[in-house]
Design a protein around this nucleic acid. Structure first.
Lengths: 346, 346
DNA sequence: CTCTGTTGTGCAAACGTTTACATTTATTTC
DNA sequence: GAAATAAATGTAAACGTTTGCACAACAGAG
């Protein structure tokens, strides 16, 4: 086990024949120090190749000037826009931003990361959409008043923290209204992983829109995938097998939609001529080299949310007075692409 | 400016009526402590909700048990596999892994991140392919013997550190040989950003393969993009405009290739029937909703490189004796897809 | 019952900073 | 030129850990 060695502030002080305090002052540009002394110190710093140790600094200042971000599968292209947002606003603040990723739903290491970060390594953390099952993470955060954090896309009641949310219910409702407006009446829904709140919200949006239109929903029109979006393929087939198959399918997300489209194409249905398909998330990047038409979808402003979250934290950290917690719901918008068309049958 | 408060080891010690040293011992499972005492301490820890402060710990131990990764545009889908590799092996070590991203070629903040990380926040850092122009980063690292690091895809001579490299020269050569074997003779090259070493290596591979085949390369057959891969579109058009247009184009990377294909399609050429196009990187994700055929490419084992780099560091950090620096060159392989076919003209 | 050894604990120094306060030095002001 | 004030620097404590060392308690051996 190797450790680090290095030149410390007192080495610089000795070299420049001043006290450590003075060196600290020039390093931090705080308090006046005489130009000639400052120069001596600067020279010593250069000669010795000194850089301040952040652990020590964080220890005494109780701040690290760093914001941590924890997400579930950083490699997932879903995060493309979100990351871009983080990067962008990181560049604009004085805070360093660091990403931690936990593979799959590995709750244990997620909690570990959060504990790690919240104890002296960052000043604030941003969490993306912790699964509902991440009770341990939530419980931990619940009791942690020490640190500022924002949750994106997770509205756990136990948590009173900043929350940036997406209007999944409204987005789904809008999507279905869009299909209705295209003349569709027989609209089915493929629901995502039912353990995720987001899936239920989108389902509810679907149901609401249908109810408002006065259409009774055959329960067979609602199919649920397992935890794997690939099962969207089977769900779609189940819908096509009905004697009264739908003319349009609203899917809980684009990944599922891509499999629904594939299922349609595989059994010789044309998309959108024979069946309209709509997704959610507006992902530009789809699983497995998807080659079908671009999927009409609902866009969520992830770039903006990414930007806003670090901006928000940076403002809070720099404010003297206690600030109110933010709870903001972002609206979505329909993105018309190639998988939806007017309903031709009546 | 708010700071953190929190319960410290001495609070626990007081509560459990033992010394701080003893608390430390139970927290770290080091040295024997009597079972009943341990239990008292554990209770106190639970009651007070204590977690150790990592800044203090890092300060005295001179280790943080964390590895930092710095890349240029984390959101770039190019990193998909690499990130996956990092995540995977992070899960298998006891090290926390944190990603830092700098937008574009922002050298200043890149150096800032590296300085930050190397001074008491991580035990080792992984850098991906610093541009050659990142002299300041390289100069900084050159003088930094304190910390272990690995460079991926950067062979700067000044640096003696662990290097994981890709055989760009060999990969390009292989690609061109593949085209030759398909009967192509008039093979052009669109070279990437000429400031990047990787572009030059791939160019050299192209030239070498052509030379070996005894084909003299018309200099107009080598087009260079600007720093923006979008200019691949113009380069391709320049090639098509020649009286003797090529039958195949080898592009420095897939992003460029996607624009070359687009240029071809836009002027009514069929790909690959009229013109074969080959890329490099095997990116599954292409810019701007690319809708052409899948691009035949050269794959580099980024997933493995990601895995190997954190494994390597973790081994080095845990080894007592001085280990030799690693310098490893990874081989590439041709991935046959849809943009190359036999040369039909003679 | 002393001696030696083991085992479990506590004391205090150290890690590299920052910063309130004390002290020195320089600059006014009268 | 002394007194008063301002400016620059130094002193030392503090931040929350870990760990070498000393010490106490207690065992087993003689």
């Amino acid at each position: 086990m190797k450790g680090r060695k290095g030149v410390s502030i007192v080495d610089v002080a000795r070299e420049a024949k001043v006290s450590a305090a003075t060196v600290s002052r020039v390093v931090n540009n705080i308090d006046k120090v005489k130009p000639e002394v400052r120069q001596k110190v600067l020279d010593a710093i250069r000669d010795l190749g000194y850089s301040p140790n952040h652990a020590a600094r964080a220890l005494v200042k109780k701040r690290s000037n760093c914001i941590g971000i924890v997400v579930n599968n950083l490699h997932d292209p879903f995060f493309h826009d979100l990351i871009k947002g983080f990067e962008m606003s990181a560049q604009q603040t004085s805070y360093a931003v660091m990403f931690c990723s936990v593979l799959g739903g590995d709750v244990a290491s997620k909690e570990q990361y959060v504990r790690y970060l919240t104890n002296g390594v960052v000043d604030a953390v941003i969490l993306y959409g912790s699964y509902l099952s991440d009770k341990s993470v939530i419980n931990y955060l619940k009791d942690t008043q020490d640190i500022d954090y924002v949750m994106i896309e997770n509205d756990a009641e136990e948590l009173n923290c900043n929350k940036l949310l997406i209007d999944n219910f409204g987005g789904a409702k809008k999507a279905v209204e869009y299909l209705l407006q295209k003349g569709h009446r027989k609209i089915a829904h493929i629901c995502g992983n039912p353990n995720k709140k987001v899936s239920r919200e989108r389902l509810d949006g679907y149901l609401e829109a249908m109810k408002n239109a006065g259409i009774e929903v055959d329960e067979r029109y609602v199919q649920c995938t397992s935890t794997d979006y690939r099962s969207g393929y089977a769900c779609a087939n189940a819908l096509f097998d009905l004697k009264q198959p739908p003319t349009a399918i609203f899917c809980s997300d684009d990944a599922i939609a891509s499999f629904a489209v594939r299922a349609a194409l595989d059994r010789g249905l044309r998309v959108p001529e024979d069946i309209s398909v709509m997704g959610f998330d507006n992902q530009t990047i789809l699983p497995d080299h998807y080659r079908g038409p671009d999927i009409t979808s609902v866009n969520q402003p992830l770039y903006k949310i990414g930007m806003d979250s670090v901006k928000l934290l940076s403002e809070r950290l720099n404010s003297d007075e206690e600030m109110e917690l933010v709870r903001k719901i972002y609206q979505t918008e329909i993105v018309e692409k190639e998988t939806v068309t007017e309903c031709k049958v009546e």
